[in-house]
Design a protein around this nucleic acid. Sequence first.
DNA 1: ATCTTGCATGCATGCAGCCTGTATGTTAAT
DNA 2: ATTAACATACAGGCTGCATGCATGCAAGAT
Lengths: 199, 199
Amino acid sequence: MQDESKRRSNRERSEATRAQLVAAARRLFVDKGYAETGTPEIVAAAGVTRGALYHHFADKQALFRAVVESESRRVAAEIEAAAPRDMPVREALVAGGRAFLDAMREPGRTRLLLLDGPAVLGRGDMDAIDAAIGGMRSLREGLAAAMAARTIRRMPLDAVTLLLSSAYDRAALAVEAGADPDIFMDVLAAFVDGLAAPG
Amino acid sequence: MQDESKRRSNRERSEATRAQLVAAARRLFVDKGYAETGTPEIVAAAGVTRGALYHHFADKQALFRAVVESESRRVAAEIEAAAPRDMPVREALVAGGRAFLDAMREPGRTRLLLLDGPAVLGRGDMDAIDAAIGGMRSLREGLAAAMAARTIRRMPLDAVTLLLSSAYDRAALAVEAGADPDIFMDVLAAFVDGLAAPG
DNA sequence: ATCTTGCATGCATGCAGCCTGTATGTTAAT
DNA sequence: ATTAACATACAGGCTGCATGCATGCAAGAT
């Protein structure tokens, strides 16, 4: 076993420190919320000092943003794994929705992405993150495909995406609060089917 | 002009002080957000001291809750004025939705009720406020009437209410961000019509 | 009816603890 | 030698509480 804690390159050190900070921050932000979590607590959990934190991140909010982006990426990955692009459009929408609700049951995700995220980063920034790397991107693509295939009516794509995405978000919150996922899946499916093209 | 600033009864003093605190807090919470607004700033704007604030409210969060409840009541009042109980059910749903979007254009309401509210008070408390005194109560009643009249299908009422309410919320945010209200009204109407009972 | 007496209410001030962001110092990589 | 990666120390601000004071108020005594 050669010495692995010393003689690290700067790149390695930075990446390790950043990862530890993001991981520790995620745990604490999830457990206590953004406002109630102090940077002294975060750096203690990460095993570094506040100097390291403010070397790698501009401020506490920037660290939070890193946590949110990481989490958003994971949710999107789970959705895309469950609803690949070559799946039939309606089936993909249902499977993607189901995967989203499942992914959001991972503890802390609703708090990070749906409660603290919008309040701390602003709705505009959260929408940008969601549209770029989050689950909303998948939904938008699915709806676009469904419109192209005439599975659902042609409607303003961005507006439909935003509103449906919002309904999915609220369903995730309800499920975490103890509601039955199947009931919400059914209602969400009814929403989508209600947009079906006539004929 | 008789002396009106002195010799106030205790009740009058309390109500005046509370009202000034809530009004000043509302302005500042709207302008800068909950976290960025300090109690020294609030009491200065209200013309009182921090002692008065902590005499009337348990903490900063309790003051925020008072602001949110007041705002929620006003939104609900506007909705009920536009969609009285004796209106035909589908018409009432549309009129109520329109009134909600209009009411939410009052500056600051989206921030108070849709961004800071859930983060500061928690989704559970915000849902409780919304269901008890806010716009969600009207929506729930409208949907219940529509189901009873077979205007829309019979579905789990609470789930439908929650998801539709969430879509309306997101529409309000989009409108405030500059989107065209008519587009979102159309999409929301399509959602409701998609739930129409067959036949 | 008025007066006094005791208590509760409404509020002001000062304090203790904590947190954030920055500036400065130190060690290790390049 | 120069710079990156951190550690430490400091300044300012904020929250919640504890204490102190003045006024309203209720009830009995006169």
